[in-house]
Amino acid sequence: MQEEQATVEERAAGDRRTIALVDDDRNILTTVSIALQAEGFATRVYSDGEAALKAICENPPDLAVFDIKMPRMDGIELLRRVRERSALPVIFLTSKDDEGDEEFGFEVGADDYITKPFSLRLLIARIRALLRRVGLGTSEDTAAGSPEPGPVIERGRLRMDPARHQVMWEERPVSLTVTEFLILEALAQRPGVIKSRNQLMDAAYPDDVFVDDRTVDSHIKRIRRKFRSVDRNFGAIETLYGAGYSFADG
């Protein structure tokens, strides 16, 4: 395998999805790439964040997996740069000792994370789940029954179009990641109804076995920050301490 190699055995037709892998550990790159190819994915591998950023921006994959700890440009900075340009689905790889990095990763827009050492089966399952959430599941996923995008949601100044992954607040666009979108959608579907953290995680991570409570708090914090960038008085997402969150229609 060559560093910063372009697409590996990519097919132009069909439902083959391309996964970008960014990690300075060549053993991980090789092992994960081989496993993904065996599952029908095409892979692109990068051991350097700067080279990965250039390639991802010029020719976006369907999903990316970033390691956090890398020289020159770490995964946090790489994701920050990517988020300036797109809502590319991203999974972070973190070590068990890097809980702060994990939380900060969600703050800058990661969709999911997996701690090292990790199971290849778990990583592949998370990749398939995230692809389904953005409507890029394979024919195998379709046969299993992938959900169709819901109807347009209009709640006061909020308008959400799941089919187009578009969010508007007072006619101004708000760019959300896949996970942020699904959390907000779950809240906006039933204004005034308190949703627990577990309920919100079930909406955003329907295929995951377990997601930490602090994960939803990090996502909510980022959603609020994004809406306040277009309306500094935004307060439609209410916190009910000890219970969860709700959306205030109006």
Rank of each mutant, 00 (worst) to 15 (best):
I56R: 02
R80K: 15
D62W: 12
I91T: 04
L88D: 03
M73G: 05
I76W: 01
G100N: 05
L21R: 01
T30L: 12
R72D: 15
R44C: 05
D97S: 14
S47Y: 02
G75H: 06
V82D: 00
G75D: 11
L78Q: 08
T30W: 11
D101C: 10
F106K: 00
I28P: 02
L63N: 07
V108Q: 00
N27I: 10
F92M: 14
R72F: 14
G75Q: 10
P89E: 06
F92L: 14
Y46W: 14
L21C: 06
I28V: 15
V22A: 06
L53I: 11
L88V: 03
V32P: 00
V90S: 03
V108K: 00
V90F: 05
V32W: 01
I68L: 13
F92Y: 09
N59P: 01
L53Y: 13
K96D: 04
I19L: 06
E77V: 07
A42C: 15
A42E: 10
G100R: 04
D74Q: 07
L36K: 04
T43S: 15
D23K: 05
I68G: 01
V45P: 00
P89W: 06
E50I: 12
V32F: 05
E77T: 12
K96F: 07
E107L: 08
G75M: 09
V65S: 12
I34A: 09
S86G: 07
T43M: 10
G49T: 09
I68R: 00
D97M: 08
I34L: 10
Q37D: 14
E50P: 07
I34N: 03
N27H: 13
E77F: 01
G75W: 02
D97K: 09
L21P: 00
L21G: 02
V45I: 15
I91D: 01
V32K: 00
P89Q: 09
E107W: 02
R85V: 10
R85T: 11
D67Q: 12
G49V: 05
V90H: 01
Q37I: 12
L21Y: 02
T94G: 05
D23S: 09
V32Q: 03
G105S: 08
L36Y: 06
L93A: 03
S47H: 04
P89A: 11
A51V: 10
Q37P: 06
E99A: 08
I56S: 03
K69M: 15
A55V: 15
F104G: 00
R83Q: 07
A51S: 15
A42T: 15
M70Q: 09
S47I: 04
G100L: 03
D24I: 08
R81G: 11
E39A: 14
F106S: 01
D48N: 14
D62Q: 12
L29V: 07
P89K: 06
A42D: 08
C57G: 06
D62I: 11
T30E: 13
D97L: 10
